[in-house]
Write a protein that binds this DNA or RNA. Sequence first.
RNA 1: GGGUGAGUGGCGAAAUGGUAUACGCACUAGCCUUAGGAGCUAGCGGGGCAACCCAUGGAGGUUCGAAUCCUCUCUCACCCACCA
Length: 831
Amino acid sequence: MKKYNPKLIERKWQKKWAESGIYKDYSKPKKFYALDMFPYPSGAGLHVGHPKGYIATDVVSRFKMLNGFSVLHPMGWDAFGLPAENYAIQNKIHPEAAVKENIKTFKKQLGLFGFTYDWDREINTTDPEYYKWTQWIFLKMFEKGLAFESDEPINWCPSCQTGLALEDLENGLCERCGTQVVQKKMRQWVLKMTDYADRLLEDLDREELDWEKSIVDQQKNWIGRSEGAIVKFSIVTNGSLASTMEAKLPNMLEVFTTRLDTIFGCTYCVVGPEHPIIEKLKDQIKNYKEVEKYVIKAQNKTDLERTDLQKEKTGVELQGIRVTNPFNNEELPLFVADYVLGHYGTGAVMAVPAHDERDFEFAKKYKLPIKKVILPEELLNIPRNLEDIAAGARTELRVESDCFICDGKLVNSGKYSDLTSEKAREKMAAWLEKKKIGGKKVNYKMRDWVFSRQRYWGEPIPIIHCEKCGTVGVPEKDLPVELPKVEKYEPTGTGEGPLANIKEWVNAECPQCGGPGKRETNTMPQWAGSSWYYLRYIDPKNEKELVGKTEEKKWMPVDLYVGGAEHATRHLLYARFWHKFLYDIGVVSTKEPFKKLVHVGLIQGEDGRKMSKRWGNVINPDEVIFEYGADSIRLYEMFMGPFMQNIAWNTKGVVGMRRFLDKVWKLKSVISEQRSVNNNLEILLHKTIKKVTEDIESFRFNTAISALMIFLNELEKQERLFTVHCSLFIKLLSPFVPHIAEEIWEKLGHDKSIFFEKWPEYDPKLIKDEQIMLVIQINGKVRDQIEVASGVKEKDAKELALAQDKIVKYIGDSSIKKIIFVRDRLINFVI
RNA sequence: GGGUGAGUGGCGAAAUGGUAUACGCACUAGCCUUAGGAGCUAGCGGGGCAACCCAUGGAGGUUCGAAUCCUCUCUCACCCACCA
């Protein structure tokens, strides 16, 4: 018998699979679309952590094939964007060349694992034939008014020299390079994602959406819907209402609040430093110099400084300006303070120090009045019975500081006093609406998507600026607008993209009037191409449409999507947004793109830290495969623990998997005859079929594999092995370790691939043991166990149990108070 | 500060109200071997000669019975964070 030699076997089968194209049978009636988050091909190549998710989708894909599904399992490259470009700049290669090189490496590395990818469907986001459609989607959004130009200040990374979306920040630092982001006012393309906020939120609760709770919660949190109200405070300047229409001065200050019930406790109002009212009322503000100084200082602060929770709150009163609370006509001071954010709500708030911690802090510092208008309900119904107090009935009653931020009952609130917070909010909002000075309003934390980057390596935005016609979309027939090949592509830092330097590219005819125009020089962000790629796999060669209708209907939605949890609020939100837009314009037929979403846990370095060059703890899969074989690493990564959990790599673990496969390999030589007998092994086999089937379906690969190991251990104890047992066992193993499974299958005398076989079904009659071990407990403690026929009745079990010496001894003279009998499991005597 | 999840042998972990520690790694002893980063056999939570007792971060509770459910508490990880 030859030794198990994974190198030979794996090369042989990978070649055979590629030649025969067994994975490309898309003719079966049932479909399954298995998708991995495609990688961006970095220069470092794959480490052992990357393939974990890919292995899982491959296991499920093969499992589904065996269960009679047509399986679409594609792979491609997300190659635009900052990481690829920064890598190219650092290594002084053109990004296009770098990407080409890196893809080659990645593809070679992935090839070693024996995945079922249909490489005919390979896509690359930097391919003009691909980004033609990315640009097409942008144009459609532009046509519908969802893509527009804006001059709002945005987050600017001084190191990457580009604007960033809110989603690209980590604690106010650039997510890519860690540089502090600054606010910069500049012309930007923005996608109106907030128009879809409600649908993005609501559809997360759709029944057919089988997503992990943590990711659903993260998205909900990010979208951040909050129901509140707008209240208009009238503005009083120098003692009179500022409604002189001639001067066009604003006469109302709009604030947003979720706690309208606390409005009688409002003792001042605050606007953020960005608020336009400051500029507009500058002549009325007595201390304008001081105010201006504060505003400039606040604007120069980085986001990190400004949002630092530890820092003390600061602000300046706008002297000469007062605002009036419409509910009680009280005149209140107005402040500017940078704890109020310009971009959320109306950029202005009513401050209620008694019931908001931030206002409380500010009011204490500036000695502003604090007026209580909400009391905890418990305080109003103090229990008469002192014993209740002793019993802890009032543990809920805790007023730790003078600031009470929960709902309760209103006091000192005019006709609204004695109402609960919830009721008061309803009534007050209704009153505001009646008086036309505000009303209910829903706000979102999520902001529109800042969609332009001042960089070279991205999809050109297909827009031409014409002096006469303004911004004009490039006609569909002229797509793609190809990214020009240039020598110099470093960022300019001026706010224009590097493309601005290429005169012959920039100057273009206006598609509308034929006059001189200039091309848009900003490019799209990294996330553009990945926002719809799953659709292109379905119909990658289609030149006329983004995706053909028939093909789209056949494959969508994606049945299984596997990837890292870090994409919960960016890629997954952007993709859902684009998908909903494509649904609205009739390109796709499903409301949501991804049916089941599973996130893959990180594989950390052997030192428990994140695998990275910096720590020198990177494990290269090529070397592991060279040493132990692809099947061993596949098996190990699925066995190492719960799929979603982060776990440190341990090469010793791969050794164990190799030992297991060595034993599997040896089995084939001792198979003696083809016969089935009904014995314990048969029962175990059917139990194993059940367990492996269920575990693969629910992503519990680790326990599926352990069941297979238990079965092998049992097989090894047998004197004679029967072909039927071994065949079924190999089939169960095949999704995990396809190469060795094929080889053994062939050696067993089959001339067709094991993946043309049918997945084994268990016999429900066989998974019931005939004899079971019945546990005997006394007062819940295990004291003995007896072998009895399964399905034994309580009466018989009791008799048998009470006949055991040990039990007799334990019970002694005590009387049995109660007997608990759990069928086929235990009998418990309470004495 | 908010959200989510998790704490079980030397290590990765299993068990979702019913025999805690399956399976794998590491380790120990023995066999085989010129040798072993190979293979085989046995052992492997702690204590005890034993009968047994004690153990799932900690403290209570519910239950005939709790790693699992409830209350409090400690620790760790990830995500969000002045969102009014």
